[in-house]
Amino acid sequence: MNQQKNIIEVQGLVKWYPVKAGVFQKVAGYIKAVDGVSFSIKRGETLGLVGESGCGKTTSARCMLRLIEPTKGRIIFNGRDIMRLNREQLRKIRPRMQVIFQDPYSSLNPRLTVKEIIGEVLAFHGIARGKELEKRVKHLLEMVGLAPHHMRRFPHEFSGGQRQRIGIARALATNPDLVVCDEPVSALDVSIQSQILNLLEDLQARLGVSYLFIAHGLNVVKHISHRVGVMYLGKIIEVTESDEIYRNPLHPYTQALISAIPIPEPKVRRRKILLEEDVPSPLNPPEGCRFWTRCRHAVNICRREEPELVECAPGHKVACHLYGR
């Protein structure tokens, strides 16, 4: 059945950035931004990625789209291994994968009108020109809740939420199968966030597009995603259905992450799991389990052996020795 097929499969994705030092700029080490990440997304599905700043969410997404070159890994998009594609072949496949960025201010060219911003994408991919292009732009604007006459305005004439709608219209212009949403609501006010989240959900229901949805806020990610992956220091440490991740978090880091979210209910006092210190440097991640330096349950094996991401219940994978076979 086509519905169930994965639109994308990422296997063993690695991205290391060399760090140079000394007069001769010799490579002194590597920032292990992404260090062996695997996941898949089905057609029409939203996979959420959460984790703290610097854990590798954006890098994973950009590698997946080959906007940056992965160090290692396989990426199967629509049944094709895109790591093997040359520039020309990649260009053909590009319109099928799009991105929405966090900052609705810097991601739109201030010198172009909305029509030019969206039209540029249509023209570049040879989708439409002239009258047809204008018709498409109007249609896209209506789809994201803006008016056709907004076409002639410049980005600075819009509020943050409206700019994000323009960003969404641009991403959808090529009728993509997969859209990466990298913190699309983090810069927006609460009352505007819900407008954009609803819009993204409506568009998915209507167009059947898949999302990789990245955010800090687990409540936002949980709301919009079908499944959620939690990242820590370049690894996915737990992945499961979004209700399950909240009701039954297994990894000690996921548990701490959930307990840290402030809840807008003053009468409910939950016990917080306060983590000590900061996330270690990705230049020199801890041996064994990467979380052991902050984990309350760490035992000897955690410092020596890295736990694998294994399925411990149907559809629920976790990388932690507490759940060994």
Partner: peptide, 23 residues
Amino acid sequence: GLLKSIPRLEGEKGRLNVIEGSV
């Protein structure tokens, strides 16, 4: 409106309440 528009960790999925327009 603000309180109702926050996605909650508990609670059902489905459409969020929105405050129309902007500041």
